[in-house]
């Protein structure tokens, strides 16, 4: 199966809580090409896990559209979403143990994850042993969770996530609590999956190096996509409503409320800082921002 494209347009998600509503996503615009690997980075509470839950069809957005492949997830029924998760969308939860049944061996765990796809016409599935080979666990089909190292457990969780041959793989914090060797093993497995199957991969991580390794990193802040890193370069992203999130280091100099004038000349846009409403005027002008 080839990878699935992902498109989010002005996605908003609000949690209803007893203490009041929480806006987890405040208008996310994101596009992911088929077969692309992307790291979703950002501080805790930035909305990463919420976005991944929406992409997995576990929740429906409060507003906006989420497309995975040709599917508008907001318009699918619960049964259709379940079918998608069993066939085309793979999810690896944070914490390897949460992805595996502790009383079944790895082969059985992978087999169980294939059950939905196995009953769907037109889907050819790899043997669980082949899947385990793919993630770097050859011959470990009979092993149980408590017999694996942390890195092996994470790769086993990965195997379960790709068992049904999904076009989109969502992985939450695969490298946290791993040493560098384990991290490399897990990332190598992810890269292998992407390379051999063309699976679109979205990895939620706090580790900036993961983003660098995957080639594209999208930074989320305050429920929005604020910046992207591609091929070593960092970019601010203009959201669908025209807003831009300033990099954190810049934001430190120009706190919220700062007034800018936008000067466009010679193919570039310059933001000139003005008065800050209710705040002292900053002495230095804003840097030039190229087109």
């Amino acid at each position: 199966m080839n990878g699935l494209a992902v498109a989010c347009r002005r996605v908003v998600h609000i949690y209803r809580a007893e203490a009041g509503d929480v806006v987890a996503l405040a208008g996310v615009d994101l596009s992911i090409s088929p077969g692309e690997m992307l790291a979703l980075v950002g501080p805790s509470g930035s909305g990463k896990s919420t976005l991944v839950a929406l992409l997995a069809g576990l929740m429906r957005p409060s507003a906006g559209r989420v497309h995975v492949g040709t599917y508008d997830l907001g318009k699918l029924s619960n049964a259709e979403l379940a079918r998608l998760r069993g066939t085309e969308i793979g999810v690896v939860l944070q914490g390897a143990a949460r992805n595996l049944l502790p009383y079944a061996n790895l082969w059985r765990n992978v087999w169980l994850a294939q059950r939905r796809a196995a009953r769907t016409a037109g889907i050819r599935l790899d043997d669980p042993d082949r899947i385990l080979d793919l993630v770097g666990l050859p011959g470990r089909g009979k092993a149980r969770l408590d017999q694996l190292s942390p890195g092996q457990r994470q790769r086993a969780a990965l195997a379960v996530g790709i068992a049904a041959g999904p076009g989109l793989l969502l992985v939450d914090e695969p490298t946290s609590q791993l040493d560098s060797a384990g991290r490399d093993e897990v990332l190598a497995a992810i890269e292998t999956v992407n390379a051999e199957r063309g699976t679109t991969v979205v990895v939620v991580t706090h580790d900036a190096d993961v983003g660098t390794r995957l080639g594209r990193a999208v930074t989320m802040r305050d429920g929005r996509v604020g910046a992207e890193g591609r091929d070593g370069q960092d970019f601010a992203v203009v959201a669908g409503d025209g807003t831009i999130q300033l990099p954190p280091e810049v934001l430190g100099e120009f706190p919220p409320g700062t007034l800018f004038t936008v000067d466009r000349a010679d193919g570039s846009v310059t933001l000139l800082a003005g008065d800050t409403v209710g705040l002292p005027r900053m002495p230095d002008p804003a840097p030039r921002v190229p087109d």
Partner: peptide
């Protein structure tokens, strides 16, 4: 509950 959630996450049908 996490185990039951995991089974649902994998898209397994209700009878299963």
């Amino acid at each position: 509950s996490t185990e039951i959630g995991l089974l649902a996450l994998r898209g397994l049908r209700l009878p299963t």
